[in-house]
Amino acid sequence: MTFITNKMTKSLAITAVAVGFLFIAGCAANKSTKTAAATSKPAVWPLTLKDPATTESGAQIWAENCMRCHELRSPSQYTPAQWGIIVQYMRLKAGLTGTQAKKVLAFLQSASAH
């Protein structure tokens, strides 16, 4: 990589990061241009919860706790059986009780089967 000098990569990286920061600042300033559709977007990126009312507490525990360390993955990304494995593991990472984990699993499995 001799043709890419340290200086070049440094200024490239800094410019890229700076441009990105400006964009984000621009978004905040642009608030008024938002559409109603954008406002009703769910709070979690960019998933729509299938059935928040019917499995409320499981969905809530999932949406709130599983968001602490990483983005939420769509329930449809895994099969119900795979969620069984994942929740058994992530329960430990998230420090959930068995009851909480069961609720999260029931929600993910029902949403995944859709």
Partner: peptide, 12 residues
């Protein structure tokens, strides 16, 4: 700005 409603920017 995941809820800013601007395509692409909401992923940055």
């Amino acid at each position: 700005p995941s809820l800013c409603g601007i395509k692409y920017l909401d992923r940055v």
